[in-house]
């Protein structure tokens, strides 16, 4: 646990950096100067919520990716390669069509239910299709996601909702203000829940037989994991939009560093996830200042680079 301290400090430093980057120039001195409090206002309404949202979303998404990898016993699965995100978007679209006035928590619930159904379908297909290679699993997920996405796109096009759809599928924190991100605390609660169930989820990663032998009901562990993943995905999609790669890279890097015993690795995964999202968002805010590049795009570039490095390193280790 002591070894977590430097990582924790690094995340805090990044968070502090995030607080002081943006269009309006805020520094400690302007904050303290009593100039009608506009700096403090920006801080409270925009910067703090944004930074908190980054941290909460990063933690929750990285943990959700880990859970998916445990449940499918596959390293290459995360909510965006398993149809989960696409299903959640379809759910949001359904709400926009049928009950556009629904409060945010209702939208999130519907999205979570859709995500749950989509992910359960994914797992069902995995059980039915004989899988000859580990790479088949994410491929099946991508195909399923593609089909759901196509249907969603078609509906959105027909009903003129493509723009909203885009907001859900591309992560972007620039619109985060006080009052619009608080749902992410639910994501945090789910992260804590995952930590409490870490032993059970690790056991599920050992497969049905081991789980049963040790007296756990495999189905209920799977259900618990699925519910956490679906709700986290729905919360993220509803509030800030999808963050690609995060749930793939972070668990893999941490797994290489310290293995998959989630009781030990989950705090690292959460911190690493928060840190990576903070870095990507900060990059997106400074490279094209005063404009912003959405975090989804930055994450795509940084993420694929990291992922390539990871794959190459793994090959080296095997050789």
């Amino acid at each position: 646990m002591i070894r977590l301290l430097p990582a924790l400090l690094a995340v805090l430093a990044l968070a502090a950096t995030s607080l002081f980057i943006g269009v309006s120039d805020i520094s400690l001195s302007t904050l303290l100067a009593q100039d009608g409090g506009s700096a403090a206002q920006v801080m409270l309404v925009s910067r703090v919520p944004r930074t908190l949202a980054l941290i909460l979303a990063g933690m929750a998404m990285a943990v959700a990716g880990t859970i998916m990898q445990m449940l499918t016993q596959n390293r290459f699965v995360e909510p965006s390669t398993a149809g989960t995100v696409e299903s959640a978007s379809l759910g949001l679209l359904a709400v926009a069509l049928v009950a556009p006035g629904m409060p945010l928590i209702g939208k999130m619930t519907v999205a979570a239910l859709f995500a749950l159904a989509g992910t359960a379908l994914f797992l069902r297909i995995l059980r039915l299709v004989p899988l000859r290679s580990a790479l088949m699993v994410p491929l099946v997920g991508l195909i399923l996601g593609g089909i759901i996405e196509a249907a969603t796109n078609f509906l959105a096009y027909r009903f003129d909702l493509l723009q909203s759809l885009n907001a859900w599928t591309t992560g972007d924190f620039s619109g985060v203000l006080r009052g619009r991100y608080e749902l992410l605390w639910l994501g945090f609660a789910l992260t804590v829940l995952a930590y409490l169930a870490a032993d059970r989820l690790t056991l599920a990663g050992m497969g049905r037989d081991f789980t049963t032998n040790l007296g756990l009901r495999y189905r209920s562990v799977m259900t618990l994991g699925l519910v956490i993943v679906s709700m986290v995905t729905a919360v993220i999609v509803v509030t800030v939009g999808m963050l690609p790669f995060l749930g793939l890279i972070v668990p893999n890097v941490v797994s290489l560093m310290m293995g998959d015993n989630m009781r030990r690795s989950l705090p690292w995964i959460a911190l690493f996830g928060a840190g990576l999202v903070l870095i990507c968002d900060i990059i997106g805010r400074i490279v094209y200042h005063p404009f912003e590049i959405p975090i989804g795009a930055v994450m795509g570039i940084v993420g694929s680079g990291l992922f390539l490095a990871l794959l190459l390193r793994r090959r080296e280790r095997l050789a």
């Binding site: 016993q73 596959n74 390293r75 032993d199 690790t202 990663g205 037989d209 293995g259 998959d260 015993n261």
Partner: peptide, 29 residues
Amino acid sequence: SILRQENRIPARLTVRDLVEFGRYPYSKG
């Protein structure tokens, strides 16, 4: 308790982690 013939655990666990999981029925983690 049972150990089946084909065991493939893709999760990266240390030997000690794995053996300690054998205590799960008693310790619940």
